[in-house]
Design a protein around this nucleic acid. Structure first.
Lengths: 264, 264
DNA sequence: CAGTGGTCTAGACCACGCT
DNA sequence: GCGTGGTCTAGACCACTGT
């Protein structure tokens, strides 16, 4: 690398009562927020920062770690530290599973993408049968000893992962439908369920938030200090039979969930 | 300190491909999750861990930092590292503002408390008039230049703070009612609004999650790695007039929000 | 191969809380 | 004063990514 790009950053102020690593973090944070480093761009290397600020390596590493903790940057071993691109916020209205969308052959995710103007993608799709956990079994009202169909996938917006989802469907409702194929066809799982006679009536969602596991951090490509929203949705048909449970983990800064309910 | 308590922890396995600091973190995590260290209890000091695992100080510090990032422990300068106490989970059903509860003279919070069996408390109640932010003004459909009544308070369960809430009510709907008193009387704000002719019809809630500000961490008494749920609720009367906006910040591990909606 | 971040050592001094 | 965690130094070797 030709270090042609002279660092245009303030130095450390000894009269400042904040410790050096916090000052360095503040300088870098300001540079990022003022777009001196654009989203996706590489920050100066540790060696550069050591020279620029005149401190030991652990000190600049601690500064960078602050920023990772805030989800501002992501580091990649052997490549560098990169400014985190902020995926757009998705507003999820509670009509996102309305039948009119399915009738148009659209899955809920592409409906949202179209409305918000980002390019959607789904990958890491796997389909298998396995025994459900007690949480899922309880909601599906099936014994934990029965296999269910498990569909797992990851959603991306503009190339950034923003959500993982795992659906559980009793085998009796999925057998012989495209639900057990990788591609479920137009309108997705819910359209297939309705075709096979399980007309949907209502959904419940249980919403929480927590810190991601190291595994989730990897799959969702998020920094240390970025929480996730968890949504456990159960779909019921017109006979009040639970036909699907969907367990989703969403990158919190990318989501706003909207619900409406009556005061009755 | 008499180190009478011999550390009953596994050591580092050189054949394990995880780095030592992760192994140490895993050992401590397992000990916490198996209640070998109870909630609120102090972890062994860094000196103890250095001796027990036979590593350098930075290595045990990195392990402890993993746990802080997960919100499992909180460190206190000069005192030690403590296992984070987990307050009870409150399940908030979307019927929590149903009229029948108000008619019985109960506020939503005490209804929940009664159902879940913890002792509720509300403190830090303040009432004032001020100009709303644009977010609130937009939802109340009032100009940002008009004062609104602002009610702020903190909720505690079994003595632990779990939520802060700030309500905004247009002056026209609050003037001359107990809404501008510290004690709003039986049934709370919503009961007073209905008495003055604004019968409630529906609510919308916008749910998100993020890391707390340092200020919120202090008020809610939570550690560095604990996220918050944000819920912005708007109440509408039968004429579809927005009569209140309530901005709440909830300690995420203490909440599960439940919603139901139609598939129509 | 060179350049990057990841992990680790063995020290040092400081700031805080308690007794 | 003593034990605690917070910050820092100046090195070392390793693992990953690129050419």
């Amino acid at each position: 690398m030709k270090g042609r790009h002279v660092l245009q950053l303030d130095g450390i102020d000894k009269t400042d009562d904040r410790p050096p690593y916090r000052q360095i973090a503040a300088v870098l944070r300001a540079a990022i927020e003022s777009h001196q480093f654009a989203a996706g761009e590489r920050l100066p290397s540790e060696a550069d920062l050591i020279e620029h600020f005149g401190v030991a390596r652990m000190t600049v590493r601690q500064a960078v770690q602050e920023l990772r903790g805030e989800g501002l940057v992501v580091s990649e071993h052997g490549r560098g530290v990169f400014v985190q691109a902020r995926p757009p916020i998705r507003r999820l209205a509670s009509d996102r599973f309305a039948r009119r969308h399915r009738d148009e052959g659209k899955a809920a995710f592409s409906v949202e993408a179209e409305k918000s103007g980002y390019s959607p993608r789904v990958d890491s799709i796997t389909v298998r049968r396995q025994k459900p956990g007690s949480l899922v079994a309880e909601r599906l009202r099936v014994p934990v000893s029965d296999d269910v169909v498990v569909r797992s996938r990851r959603y991306l917006a503009d190339g950034q992962p923003i959500e993982t989802a795992v659906s559980y469907i009793p085998v009796a409702f999925a057998a012989g439908t495209a639900i057990e194929q990788t591609d479920t066809g137009p309108g997705g799982i819910y359209a297939r369920l309705e075709e096979s006679g399980h007309v949907l009536a209502r959904f419940t969602e249980e919403v929480g938030a927590r810190m991601p596991t190291p595994d989730e951090r990897r799959v969702l490509n998020i920094g240390l200090g970025v929480p996730v929203l968890t949504v456990l949705r159960t779909a019921y048909d017109v006979n009040d039979v639970a036909v699907e449970v969907c367990d989703t983990v969403k990158v919190a800064p990318s989501y706003l969930l909207e619900y409406e309910f009556s005061a009755r």
